[in-house]
C-alpha cells in the first residue's frame, strides 16, 4: 500500500500485445465476408451485426483476443472501442483461450438444490482442475454457469456454447466425456413434456435424435 502511495501508477496493459495469430490467419475469407454482409443487411446500421460477427469470429478463431476484435471492427467499419465493449460485456464471448470443450455446469438455484454442485465437484475431481480453469492438456475448460434455462431437467450443463446435457449423473458424465474423447458430436436432446407422456405416450418430435424425460431430481450433497 505504501508503495502505491509513493508511486501511484498502475501498470497499463501492453499496448501492442503479441498476436495469437499470424497475418495470414487473421483474415476473413470471401465466404465469411459475404455472411457478415448478410448480417449487416438485416439491420438499419452495421452496429446491429456486431454480435453475429463476433459469434462468427469466435467460431473461426476459438476466442476473441484484441486482434480478432480489431478485425471485426475493420470489417464492420466500427470503432474498435465499441466492438471491445460488446465483446467484454457478454459472458459467452471468450476473451482468453479456452479448452476444446467448454463445460458450463449450471449451478443457479434450481440446479443448486438438485445436485448441480455435486456434478461440478465430480467434474473437478474427474478432470483434476478447479472451476474456472482449463486442463493442462488443453481439452477441457470447466466453468460454473448462471441459469441456462433448463431448470426442470436439473442438474444440467452446456458443452461449448452448443448442446445441453440434461438430468446429469456421474455415469452420464463419464459417457459424455468418452464421447467427446472419441470426437463424436454431441446430439441435440429433446426433453419430453410430462403432459405429452400422458396424452401421447412420448416425445412429440418424431425426428428427435435423442429424447430425455424430466426426472425426479437427485438428493443434493453440496450447495456451493
Amino acid at each position: 500500500m505504501a508503495d502505491f502511495i509513493r508511486n501511484p501508477v498502475v501498470a497499463l496493459p501492453d499496448p501492442n500485445p503479441a498476436s495469437h495469430f499470424s497475418k495470414e490467419e487473421l483474415v476473413f475469407t470471401a465466404e465469411e465476408k459475404e455472411k457478415i454482409a448478410e448480417y449487416v443487411a438485416q439491420y438499419p446500421t452495421p452496429d446491429g451485426a456486431v454480435m453475429w460477427a463476433l459469434w462468427l469470429a469466435q467460431e473461426k478463431f476459438g476466442f476473441l483476443p484484441s486482434e480478432v476484435m480489431r478485425l471485426v471492427a475493420t470489417e464492420l467499419s466500427l470503432p474498435y472501442a465499441q466492438v471491445y465493449g460488446v465483446a467484454t460485456f457478454y459472458t459467452q464471448y471468450f476473451k482468453e483461450k479456452k479448452g476444446t470443450f467448454v463445460l458450463d455446469v449450471c449451478t443457479c438455484f434450481s440446479c443448486q438444490f438438485c445436485g448441480g454442485y455435486d456434478i461440478l465437484a465430480y467434474l473437478e475431481e474427474k478432470l483434476g482442475v478447479k472451476r474456472g480453469h482449463t486442463t493442462p492438456c488443453g481439452r477441457y475448460t470447466l466453468q460454473e454457469a448462471e441459469c441456462l434455462g433448463a431448470c426442470g431437467s436439473a442438474p444440467m450443463m452446456q458443452v461449448s456454447n452448443g448442446p445441453y446435457a440434461h438430468n446429469l449423473t456421474p455415469e452420464k458424465i463419464d459417457a459424455l466425456l468418452a464421447a467427446m474423447e472419441a470426437g463424436k458430436p454431441l446430439p441435440f436432446v429433446s426433453v419430453t413434456l410430462p403432459q405429452d407422456e400422458d396424452e401421447m405416450g412420448g416425445n412429440r418430435r418424431t425426428d428427435a435424435e435423442v429424447v430425455e424425460h424430466y426426472a425426479v431430481p437427485p438428493q443434493t450433497k453440496r450447495t456451493q
Binding site: 438485416q42 446500421t45 457478454y90 459467452q92 448462471e146
Partner: peptide
C-alpha cells in the same frame, strides 16, 4: 429476423434488449 444474444441476464430487460440489438453494451 433472429438475433442471437451472448449470455447476459440483463438483456431480458426491454430497454437493454434494445441496446443489445443496436450492437452496444
Amino acid at each position: 429476423i433472429i438475433h442471437k444474444g451472448a449470455g447476459a441476464y440483463i438483456c431480458g430487460e426491454e430497454t437493454s434488449l434494445m441496446e443489445s440489438l443496436e450492437g452496444k453494451r
